[in-house]
Nucleic acid binder design. Sequence first.
RNA 1: GCCGGAAUGGCGGAACUGGUAUACGCGCACGACUCAAAAUCGUGUUCCUUUAUUGGAUUGAGGGUUCGAUUCCCUCUUCCGGCACCA
Length: 959
Amino acid sequence: MKRYNPKEIEPKWQDEWNKSGIYNAIDFDPKQKFVMLCEFPYPSGTGMHIGHIREYTVGDIIARQKRMMGYNVLFPMGYDAFGLPTENYAIKNKISPIQATEDNVSNFRVQLESMGFSIDWTRSFKTSDPDYYKWTQWLFLQFFNNGLAYQEEIAVNWCPFCKTGLANEEVINARHERCDTLVEKKLLKQWLLRITDYADRLISGLNDVDYPSRIADQQINWIGKSKGAQIDFKIENSEHFIKVFTTRPDTIFGATFLVIAPDHPLVEEITKPDHKKQVNELIEQVSRQTDVERQENKKDKQGVFSGSYAINPANKEKIPIWIADYVLMGYGTGAIMAVPAHDDRDNAFAHKYELPIKYVVEPVSGEAKQNEVKKEAIVVALRNPKTNQYLILNWGPRKERYGGRLLIGGGINQSESLEECAKREIAEEIGFTNVKLVSALGYRVHSHYFSNVVNKDVYAVISGMLYDLIDETTQETQLDEGEKDKFKLEWMEEDSALRSIDDKAHLHIFEALVKNNVFSGEGIISDSGHYDGMSSSLMRDKIVSDLDAQGSAKEKVNYRIRDWIFSRQHYWGEPIPIIHCPKHGAVAVPISDLPVELPKVDHYEPTDNGESPLAAIDEWVNVPCPVCGGPARRETDTMPNWAGSSWYYLRYFDAHNDQAFADRSKLDYWGSVDLYLGGMEHTTLHLLYSRFWHQFLYDQGLVPTAEPYAARRGQGIILGPDGSKMSKSKGNIVNPTEIIDSGYGADSLRLAIAFLAPYDLTSPWSPESLGGTSRFLNRLWTLVHEFNNQDGGISESIELKQVINKTILKVSQDLEQLGFNTAIATLMECMNEIYLIKAKDSYKSVEWQWAIETLLKLIAPFAPHITEELWHEMGNDDSIHQSEWPKYDKKYTLIDKSIIAVQVNGKLRGDITLANVNASQDDVMAAILKDEKISKYITDQKIDRIIYIESKLINLVIK
RNA sequence: GCCGGAAUGGCGGAACUGGUAUACGCGCACGACUCAAAAUCGUGUUCCUUUAUUGGAUUGAGGGUUCGAUUCCCUCUUCCGGCACCA
């Protein structure tokens, strides 16, 4: 018998497929289309890594199965070729980036083919092809012509290692995501794309696509929409207003000062002469700070008083204007109203500079009920300073509406001060008389609860206080006889008290007093004129509309996302197709002159001065203005490497069109991508950028769909065998080419990688699993060869039909949900069972022929080479990959006998087997009583209840 | 701090809308074949107890709902990812 040798059969079939072109997609085919897209690779010098293999293997499995299911599948591949790594690689090796790209691309192509991916190579391209980037430039001009691409001088994130400006999305923890270098700020004139105009659409569009919530949430998070109000505060003795953005306009009566950013345009205007020195010092100090230092100094906020005051438009009060580093010019309006009572940062700042704190929101717990008894009350946290413990009253087990552990509390008597009340309650309930007030909560707490003392619903407005116990001598308590034993006293440390207090209002008071928490939640408005008593959510709408009526506020939505910085100061990218004319400003390069090709030069090293290396090439830079023909200069910045990938999927629909980025009829046919696989790290980069481009193109009527990708799945990272991220320095990199060459072959690798874990899960690579998958393929090989060598014997096996049909059902279901690991497990199980069946009987028959061919088809998407080989060895002439996906026969997937689990009081005590599928409860009970092993658990017991789940389980409840 | 996700044998992981936890694979142990090894095949493999039978425990921890919870609810711990002086 011939041995299974992947090295022999895999290249053979790869060649065969290449020649026959069976994987090429057909435009306008009447079959239903399916676009299976995987993120195209960046052709680096190091070749493909295992992460690529995972993504493309999974994409290939789906593409192959969909093809067998009768879809017209487009499974394309290209190369994301522009960008820094190639440029750096070329500089280092002293070759041109064009050459470096060619070399790397052909290397990738060989690797991709060695995996047997069913890619339509006729539609392949790389983003650095002038034929391709012509259209990237053309699309950029659509943005430009619609005012969505603009130039501005701004402080950009500058990577000193890569010597280029970066988009916010490329900066992770103040470092460049590619090279991990700390970024600096540099003032440069940059091209930007107005992605902020699409912020809302990028959020709402997520409702129309099938993305996992972790991806959608991350994008929503990144866009950072927050609803609030913009409020104008008039500067005293000035015509100017300071606009502040706040999400909590309901707290405006608590605004005791304003803070503006050090780089706010009004700083000079409001700074009084005798404050100038301090203000300038602050500005200088802040400007020296790097982002990292700013992060570190977060806790210690620096600020100075400007000397000016503003008028709070809500109550016309005069409040000081401060300048401080914790307010950022880059978000909102660069100015805030500070409400130290209800904001952590403002609170810290107010404490540091001794600014007033005014409470205007009071928390509420419980729900208001009809006919509540309203009362004023106090709650006291009593501390023993010697032991640092707090007194808790234990009112017995916590019931639905009363009991549990509480602080000391009680109602306030008429004409009694809070302190008198507190002292009285402590004395009455506990008996301590020598206590001292430590602090009182600045606001009250509203609590709706049920009192079992008066047997009524109570609405208490509670003042909280913290007392120290000075003298532990106990005096007789003055409780009534009945009340005495109602609670026990417990002394607790702070932590256990926080965990033990059962009532929300008491807990809030305790936490606020002991931990000095700032209350930033919702509640009831107080100390705010005629708004008192409103809920904060109602107040929020009311105050904005009232102030709006005076013209000093309006509703406002703010976004965290910034416009996309689109300039790069590098050679290896698409030139931005703009010509700067002294008379006409920035002028678009006419379409007939596209593409603006990169000049072929010897030196293209980046510069330190923020200028692109292209700026030094005079003969390329100096061109006539397309409008007036006068002397003008080309834009010398290039596009980021996210440009080419923002629309590449559309190009696959019509890859070689030189009249348009793609023909409209082909765009209409292929529509949007049906399934898009890619890395989680692109969620707020490429995935967001390309959705933005696509939405814009849709608005321009250039594409037929509103969203580019109907469904997206993010892939988990494959870690090194040691469980940590693969990296050169750790030496734990797994090289796919080595695995193929070692003799396991592509099929074993494909199986191992798909079997490893669910696609979206990060998990470590285990080299041993290749042994398992390769054993599985060997068993398949043996099965078919033994079958082919049999001569005669007839077998009719219901069992065989059942096994195969159940496998068809399960594998089809699993693939639908991208459950590759469980699909393979099912196939392995199927193989095990087939071996058991075949051991019982000779198996040359029509039925076995069908069973084995079906099994081959089910395995074909996972292991395309070996199945194609065996398919042909069984006498088929066509390709298995063009055969039809098997359908299951329902008759053989149903259960034909029942094994019923028997539980007694929920504990498994055995099982009984009945021939009848729909056995009644009485049948089952009869069988149980006959079964000694099980019935011993129920003899002499009264069966209280029987729960019977047909053909599955019976549970006998015994008292 | 905020938003996601996760926690199941020695390891990767499985379990549909609550219904026999640990499928499948790896690893390990023993056996067969072999002079021997590898490969292959067979058997076993959650843990504790026991020679075995048996019994008991078990899905990060604690509580709840239920006849029954890996699955639902509450509290907490740890880990991973994202955001973060965002007003």
